[in-house]
Design a protein around this nucleic acid. Sequence first.
DNA 1: GAAATAGTGTCTTTAAGACAGTATGTG
DNA 2: CACATACTGTCTTAAAGACACTATTTC
Lengths: 266, 266
Amino acid sequence: MVSETTDRPRRSAGGGASPSPTDEAAFLRDYDAARFPRPSVAVDVALLTVRDDALWALTVRRRQHPQRGCHALPGGFLGIDESLDDAAARVLASKAGLRGVWLEQLYTFGAPRRDPRTRVLSVAYFALVDAARLEAAARGNSSVELARVCVPWAAQTGGPVRVVGASPKAGRLRLAFDHADILGMAVKRLRGKLDWAPVGFQLLPPRFTLLDLQRVHEVVRGERLDKSAFRRRMLASGMLVASGESERGVEHRPAALYQLEQRSAT
Amino acid sequence: MVSETTDRPRRSAGGGASPSPTDEAAFLRDYDAARFPRPSVAVDVALLTVRDDALWALTVRRRQHPQRGCHALPGGFLGIDESLDDAAARVLASKAGLRGVWLEQLYTFGAPRRDPRTRVLSVAYFALVDAARLEAAARGNSSVELARVCVPWAAQTGGPVRVVGASPKAGRLRLAFDHADILGMAVKRLRGKLDWAPVGFQLLPPRFTLLDLQRVHEVVRGERLDKSAFRRRMLASGMLVASGESERGVEHRPAALYQLEQRSAT
DNA sequence: GAAATAGTGTCTTTAAGACAGTATGTG
DNA sequence: CACATACTGTCTTAAAGACACTATTTC
């Protein structure tokens, strides 16, 4: 059976089957948005980076019920006059102190019981930042924590991931709600876009060597790549340009530094 | 500045800066979901098909304000205990009488003024069905209409699309709200998935010839493809199997009929 | 056998994988 | 000069594009 919740809520009950035509201004004046129950809407951000040959995600330790003590993705409720993109940027700024980070909407999670409090939809976002910026942000903020992401599936299969604490002896962390699924989808999306969209660069500082970029691709894809073929492919893609400068302070031949071609900045 | 709407709404005002720890059951009992304003959440479905060398979308003529007289995607408000996927399937069943259609979440549209009534988020879905089923469904239902989709951008660029009525003399149709953007994103997603996911098959009946499939790919991508290379690629993909049968009633050599390999059914 | 589309063969082009080699910095 | 890593060359392999060719059905 089809639920009646599909009908547009209206204060003035239109008489019977025939629609009661009024002008649009009158319609909007009489419109009663509160007539049907509405879910809460949150925005959660899967912020990923690459460091030490591993994928890391930013987590927030929950100090309140529900799921108190679990690790969660940084998130917050959507403001009633706030766009989704703005909400995601606000969450990152307020929880991690990060601004101007690459951000993209990922998926909306809406299982009816995903949050025990009430119906809460989560519009998940997916963000990428280089390790140095994320470390700097996490250092000055005791409420956030980096967690290493372990991907138990190959290629684009998808599914939840596991996370492990940063300290050497730390074990597996408990993720709140369906956040293991959100993180898994972020990894899946990242793997899917890596080869054709300029996203790998977002995990590196503005200037990087080709080997840095190769390491990032290897960590994200979870497999080794051939150096020669990788360079050919990257340079042919047109997404990079040589900056003209080179590494400094290394005790071997310095590598050329590249940067993102401005035109592919999106 | 960071808005205070990020805080978790609670009925009992916790005293000052320190959290007031209670057990989780008590927390949930005291939780007041209505404390902050919540948006309405709708689910809209971009249902696409391919016919006569063109892309078509199912539209619903709006009989009520706002945007009365415009064409819209079939949609409805999310039930408070209903999953997003269920809502999308319900919308397709109730507005188009279609069940068991391939359906995937697309994107959530949430610009604050996208609907003049009140804040309405739209969780957009993207559905594919073969032309015969869609025609059959539209024939018995005067409130829906097929609209031809014109894509004014190349490859994966993205952006809104235009729609044109089905009758030969029909001109451009006005689409309600941001539904031209939703349809545009559906086309972009379809183009992106066509080459690696088993989606082209969803636009054809269960058994089809390789030339049928090639026409579908050509229409979706908006360019001609080479027959030999297309066959090689499709047969090598493992997504198809020969059914063993052939076309009947054609006045030329009948083509072999293929079907989707069961393993790639997702 | 004419017409029409089904289906194949093959040459060329392009991109990727493998891997060895040369180049250029520091100590 | 030793060493470490940067970078290049080249052979092989796989896939795609182009396009002509053969095959099989109906009338």
